[in-house]
Design a protein around this nucleic acid. Structure first.
Lengths: 213, 213
DNA sequence: GATGAAATTGACCGATGCGGTTAACAGAGG
DNA sequence: CCTCTGTTAACCGCATCGGTCAATTTCATC
């Protein structure tokens, strides 16, 4: 790719990235034309080909940008250092929302790219995955203290359920084509409070006392 | 559309429907070629145009089939007559799974068609929506007895949370391109049991006794 | 205002794919 | 043999694709 791309103004550079994320997220790789991306970015197709020598290069650059941004934003948020489960979820949510404000379609793009089957790019995508897979979720789960939660609850299922609910909520917004990040944040906040009120063992002392009897 | 389509063998007819659901669910209307649908159905493009005079007709027929099948399957399942919340969810789930076994991509197709923006079909889609919108969810929510659930829980949020979790779970399967309905059923069952164990007020008597003290 | 380099584009190329048509083929029944 | 029905390969005209390039615009420097 042309290094001049990096000396573009941030506004223009992100316009191009977002145009790419958007177009590639709506249709498969093969059916996402460069001309459409150029139009969405407000530049000519020829200029887009000036920055990226061909379609595949742009696509893989977007994928790389996407992975790096996600990892960076998550580690920078401090979510991984939180010891409290819901605290780390809160931080992680904030990080993801911050990212979606900058790149509204980055989430959908990531999923579509991950499952893209076109042989022209699928191999490169899968190869680059190794370095980005994180085991944070599993580790987080191991560290949970069952005493903090209502008795008898299946913690791994609880974790998965919360993950699915977040995805489902996100999906509802995604489907509309544009994303209202503020409304989404409200919904996520409500979900977090709901989970805390339901899953957490509230009266730790009284529970201990009853067990002692 | 050509009435001869209905006198086709069920196997062939459903192969065509499923091919249509699949192709139209993966890309936008404009970028879903008839040739691809014909190939997926195992027939020639010319024959597909013999049954459906043009692309739009096939698309709207698929949409109509999709809406009718969903409504019919849900009412036939008896889910709406169940008084118990989790019972009706169980029945509804079974109905949807049955439908997805017959038409694996009908769910994704429905969502994509609902939000399709191409002016060639979007108007017709939206016009036909009025008759299919059901108010069952809202009614179901009104009938819930707070005494059945753990104290202080926000029932409408609980309902929404469960809905989102189901969607999120479904989404995970959808993204893979093909759908393993059996594995999905297992996951849904586990979710249902989890919700029951968490949301339901288990020891109705003991709880009342404690309150009385 | 002249100049040269860099940014940007309209127009173009060959190849491919699109929706839709048509003429021909295959086979079963009479 | 003919006819009717199901089925398809081949075709048509047009749009779109990835990618190129010569020409134009922009702009800092003199």
């Amino acid at each position: 790719m042309n290094p001049k791309f990096f000396s573009l103004s941030e506004e223009k550079r992100e316009a191009i990235l977002n145009a790419g994320f958007h177009v590639f997220s709506q249709n498969s790789y093969k059916k996402s034309p460069m001309s459409e991306i150029a139009d969405a970015a407000g530049i000519s197709k020829a200029l887009l080909f000036h920055y990226f020598h061909n379609k595949k290069e742009l696509y893989l650059f977007l994928w790389d940008t996407c992975c790096k941004a996600m990892v960076e934003e998550m580690t920078r948020s401090g979510a991984y250092e939180q010891t409290d489960l819901f605290g780390s979820m809160d931080y992680g949510m904030k990080a993801k929302l911050r990212l979606m404000r900058q790149y509204p379609d980055i989430g959908i793009f990531a999923v579509r790219a991950f499952y893209e089957k076109d042989p022209e790019v699928s191999a490169d995508i899968q190869n680059s995955m190794g370095q980005y897979l994180n085991a944070h979720a599993a580790k987080k789960l191991q560290k949970l203290d069952p005493e903090d939660f209502i008795p008898g609850i299946d913690l791994s299922l609880m974790y998965k359920e919360m993950y699915w609910a977040s995805e489902g909520c996100l999906w509802e917004y995604i489907q509309r084509g544009y994303i209202n990040v503020d409304a989404m944040e409200k919904d996520f906040r409500k979900l977090l409070e709901f989970w805390k009120s339901v899953y957490l063992r509230k009266n730790r002392e009284t529970a201990d006392e009853r067990d002692a009897i």
